[in-house]
Design a binder for these strands. Structure first.
Lengths: 282, 282
DNA sequence: TGGATCGATACCCGGGCGGTATCGCCGCCC
DNA sequence: GGGCGGCGATACCGCCCGGGTATCGATCCA
């Protein structure tokens, strides 16, 4: 199987429409139809059920869609990492660290300092990601190593080392009734009619429906809380950078957040190894 | 990048010789040379350093070799798993479980029994592997799920669930001086001049050099021990199936062996999920 | 210095991939 | 209910690219 065929199949399987898939691939519809049916013949499997009105995935098609995405990610990663390796050999070497935009910068700063102190440290390029984007970055080679936050992110398929576990707090306007409490429960926070939880943009840039205000980044969020429009549950380390006018109260039944450093399992890069070593020594 | 190019590069990188690589690929040498240099041009990276007497990998080439192998495994897995899914849809569904040939069958039997009792259980095809082969089987789709043994196997890149941890024993002829001891240390076993550890075949079928007798499988090994030609360190569960004339003595400083069930991280198969569920309930 | 080895280059050919035109099928709507 | 529109499949065509043979050029060894 060639990656071209996999790309074609993924396009059709995602669009469930040969015409649109062909447009997305920048080609005409007939050769795409042919390529798919040839693929089906070679695999000895029906991947798509077509009527002239609708295209649906078969069981085998669903399997191939999952596996093809993983395979294409691996091929893309091969290409990107090779390019980066070549660049590193003849120029400035570096390593790409993916981290959640707006996450506590304290641990990150300590990590960067500790790594910079290593004898063979190279430049660390930070890749600030939206929520849950880091895994894809690692998988397709845009990043070499990432900081993930359990249980929100999944470490599935990566090698990891746990760095720190912390409880969560709710961040409120200082004047709010709950702000004077010594602790709260999750239910009390999520059901506050006056402070609905904010809405974050999806991958496509649109916001989900709901009562909460729209927030695009960490700074906006803090502003919205200060204005008394929303509240937010966050790891307790975010207390350290809390501006005036905001209060943090422990949420006793919220799951503990574990920060882990993760890297692709076959990574043999000195830089990644160095970062991991520095991280575990923190 | 097309998988064809990756296959070409891996062949050359492994052989470090364009002629031999071309022969292995069943093609002539000139188009192979062209394909590689085209790949290098497109990547903007020198992958191989050639003199007319020797070919060596560059830094970038080494990266691509590792990544390309992983990517090709993923593509192969996509193909195999799709074929199996299609087969399962129109015939007898099944799941392939890779396990070490000659490992303790007791845990395996319990697992198979527990899974068979599940309401939607399908047939489990056993794939008996040589030492350390299971990981490759999982990676390239020849197996759907595997039983691995830490610390000998690595679970890198898979999702896992630990099933059991056990200490190790040394298996000796019953009449041997050590057989009456209540415990021994690793050094005492590995340095026995009268019972050198056996040699296992490599991937290519050849045996490493050494004093020990050659063994091909578990039965042969037990025979060799009974004959007083060798000894062997194994998990204590192997005591259960020990024939007459053999004795087992705990090795106090040998690492504990953990049996884990492992599966590819993006697996969504009902059968794999069922097996894992059954395994964790043991 | 000549031969052997090995990768690169030059040139040619055929198949496969992508394009256009068109068909066949099936809902839908007037 | 028949015409129409949307959609995937088929037919056919042209061209590019991947693979083949012949040969060159460099390097090492005798």
């Amino acid at each position: 199987m060639e990656t071209r065929e996999l790309r074609y199949f993924v396009a059709v399987a995602e669009e469930l429409h040969f015409g649109r898939a062909a447009a997305r691939l920048g080609m005409a519809q007939p050769p795409l139809s042919r390529a798919i049916s040839l693929l089906e013949r070679r695999l000895g499997a029906t991947l798509l059920e077509r009527t002239s009105r609708a295209v649906t995935l078969t069981e085998a098609g669903a399997v191939l869609l999952r596996e093809a995405r993983a395979a294409l990610d691996a091929v893309e990663a091969a290409e990107r990492r090779t390019r980066r390796a070549a660049l590193a050999a003849t120029g400035r070497p570096g390593v790409v660290l993916a981290t959640k935009a707006g996450a506590s910068s304290e641990l990150l700063a300590k990590l960067l300092d500790a790594y910079a102190a290593e004898p063979d440290a190279v430049a660390v390029d930070l890749l600030l990601c939206g929520i849950g984007e880091q895994e894809g970055m690692l998988r397709d080679g845009r990043a070499d190593v990432a900081l993930l936050h359990l249980p929100f992110d999944t470490t599935s398929g990566f090698d990891t080392e746990a760095l720190r576990t912390e409880e969560q707090v709710v961040i409120l306007p200082a004047g709010h009734p709950l702000a004077s409490r010594t602790e709260v429960r999750t239910a009390e926070v999520t059901e506050l009619p006056d402070l609905p939880l904010p809405r974050w943009p999806e991958r496509d840039g649109t916001y989900p429906e709901g009562p909460g205000p729209q927030a695009r980044d960490h700074a906006q969020l803090l502003q919205l809380i200060a204005l008394g429009r929303t509240c937010w549950i966050a790891p307790e380390s975010s207390r350290n950078q809390l501006p005036d006018g905001l209060a943090a109260v422990p949420v006793v039944d919220a799951p503990a957040v574990t920060t882990v450093i993760a890297w692709p399992p076959h990574s043999r890069s000195r830089a990644v190894a160095g970062l991991v070593r520095a991280a575990t020594r923190l």
